[in-house]
Design a protein around this nucleic acid. Structure first.
Lengths: 128, 128
DNA sequence: GGTCTAGGTCACAATTCCAGACCGGAGATC
DNA sequence: GATCTCCGGTCTGGAATTGTGACCTAGACC
């Protein structure tokens, strides 16, 4: 994507801001990645993702549903079963998100290395 | 990469979680996108992005520097000038982030439409 | 009758975010 | 020589988000 310099990346960015708040969210990225390929039930998602609180899962899922990226199907059994799945919109989001996930995955170690080095430098500065 | 089979997606996701917290952040996405192609100074970034607080810009930039995705060069002039630029790691992140930005850009309207429809349905439910 | 389940909700604590004030130090201005 | 400005950044107080843990429904199991 090319960025027009004169007419303000600003307004474009502000426009994107709202969308990025949703799709650029840590939990959203993970939920969508887990939902790729198959629908999942609530606790299944919770287990698979790990580290997410029930409330955040509910909330993120609701936001995703509101934005039309995830569908929510309730099976009126007892106890009720709720299945979440990606919509077409959600699946289209999955592609760039997978790219992001893949990048993150293959650079985790480089980042952790940099992080360690940076913190070590900071410590030296504090000590000296 | 080391990946114990038993923990499955969960541990992998948790591993990614820390990285996604950084790269999947709204401001990170915008900062990296603005830095593509050229280095920028602090207030230049602030102006171009728009809507970011000085504190968040400082913080996000620092996190990015810590993770080795952005370099910070101080020119000892008066007043001091500080230039931020993408490192190789940062440039490699730019690609998936541009894809995400492009997706966001081309689906903003669909999302806003869904959001409106959802809210309308919710209102009806509350009213009825 | 008690307890387990799935899928939530609610109240409250902890954390993070933002707006705006303040800081440092050289140069220009008074 | 006192004050104002500039850039990059920190600090403060309040607002918004997030996490934690308790609770709810309604049938199944013991």
């Amino acid at each position: 994507m090319h960025m027009p310099a004169e007419h303000g990346v600003s307004s474009q960015c502000r426009r994107l801001s709202g969308v990025l708040t949703i799709v650029g969210d840590k939990w959203t990225v993970m939920i969508v990645m887990v939902l790729i390929g198959q629908g999942r039930r609530f606790n299944e998602l919770k287990r698979l993702i790990g580290g997410i609180s029930q409330q955040m899962l509910t909330r993120t899922l609701k936001a995703l549903e509101r934005d039309g990226m995830v569908s929510r199907t309730v099976h009126p059994t007892v106890p009720p079963q709720v299945e979440y799945a990606l919509t077409d919109l959600g699946r289209s989001l999955a592609e760039p998100l997978q790219a992001l996930g893949a990048w993150a995955n293959s650079h985790v170690e480089a980042i952790e290395l940099n992080r360690g080095a940076y913190d070590a430098r900071a410590d030296v500065k504090l000590a000296g």
